[in-house]
Design a protein around this nucleic acid. Structure first.
Lengths: 214, 214
DNA sequence: CAATAATTAGGTCACTTGACCAAGGCTGTC
DNA sequence: GACAGCCTTGGTCAAGTGACCTAATTATTG
């Protein structure tokens, strides 16, 4: 089990239900140990810098043992990406389920606050996403995974905020403003003068008045 | 001189006027050749994967020759980042100077269109920015450079759209919505259902009605 | 309990890498 | 012509790397 505290501030949760999941059997505890070490290393040394030897050391295992479970470095990387998006997906589901917001306003407010929460400090998760964006720019399989993840995340977000009975155009607009904004905010936030509370209010108002006003 | 076509679709232009520029002498043609090769390689192999030997090959020079101009790999990386942000800065200045938009609406429309233009295909520039985001998550000096770049970029954007005589709170809000959005859109755009034109209209309306309405 | 499967560990190989060194060629100055 | 400075080149070293192999140990199965 990944340390849940890594995800407690994370809005990026999304069901990879529609993704062609190559790995159909559950991963063993050792495999999980390795993949968690890989994720920790990814944010420190990047994708290319992630070596099997570094990984073995981080996972407190011998190189050969790591290679037993993942015969190639590519196997590690692929499984790591899959696991990560699966877990982000689970977390977004948990976060939306945990909310006691009832009205659309409350739900929007909750999600906006959540989505902006990683703008203040560069969390581990932000670092990992940055690495994955970079890798996705070089690797089409990872790019596809990332896009699937965003689609699922966007679905969860829009359904949570406006419910299922609203016109799909509203869903698309909510998605199209919030998803890019959350991602971009995590990058540019430290350079902005507005506080996160001010940004939250602004974004909330803009969406309420331009997208959710009937 | 860098190939200007790389930057012609790029909104990320900003003056690094306030950045402590370590390098005060002009770079030689050979140094520029090397740094351009480095940028090309960065988007292919990432920061960590960028080796001096790969660089020498890409720059059509011998390894030792590269090392003559840049004694360490760290020197290459640092100069490359500086050069890149300087040139992005120059380009945003050129793009805003080239616009014949006169009213605030026209100027906002122009900038929004420009800022969303890299959402459709993953341009070289987007790849480079992704790599730099990732490096910035691991390297504080690069992070600081990136933040300075965004501050400058944001200044150019807000001054271009609303002019200098408007209250600074308007400037801050325009910056706080557009800069993160542009960055995030370049990441998430392929996963969205709304076309870039629809997104442009939506963003334009939201800003006109919530930030620029007097 | 014996046989088999799974796991763990150490070793090896060819290759890659950053950093460093020395030598040669070219140009300009005295 | 001698010398110094700049540039280019090839070579070397130690460390690191992915992939692969073999043997020993442990766990599982019938």
């Amino acid at each position: 089990m990944p340390s849940q505290h890594c995800y407690s501030n994370s809005p990026h949760r999304r069901a990879l239900k529609g993704v062609k999941v190559i790995q159909t059997k559950p991963i063993s505890p050792k495999q999980r140990q390795i993949l968690e070490a890989a994720l920790a290393l990814l944010s420190e040394v990047g994708g290319t810098g992630l070596s099997m030897r570094k990984l073995a050391e981080r996972a407190d295992m011998r190189l050969s043992n790591v290679q037993y479970y993942f015969p190639s470095r590519d196997d590690v990387l692929r499984s790591m990406v899959q696991l990560y998006f699966e877990e982000c997906t689970d977390s977004i589901h948990e976060l939306t389920a945990a909310s006691d917001a009832t009205t659309t306003e409350e739900r929007l407010r909750y999600l906006v606050r959540l989505g902006l929460s990683h703008g203040e400090t560069l969390s581990e998760m932000c670092k990992i996403f940055r690495e994955l964006w970079a890798v996705a720019g070089r690797n089409e399989a990872v790019h596809d995974c990332l896009m699937d993840y965003y689609r699922g995340f966007a679905d969860v977000v829009s359904i949570f905020i406006v419910g299922r009975e609203v016109a799909s155009s509203v869903h698309e607009r909510v998605k199209a403003i919030l998803i890019p904004y959350f991602e971009g905010y995590s990058i540019a936030a430290p350079s902005l003068s507005l506080s996160v509370d001010e940004v939250e209010d602004m974004l909330f108002d803009m969406i309420m008045q331009n997208i959710l006003s009937n």
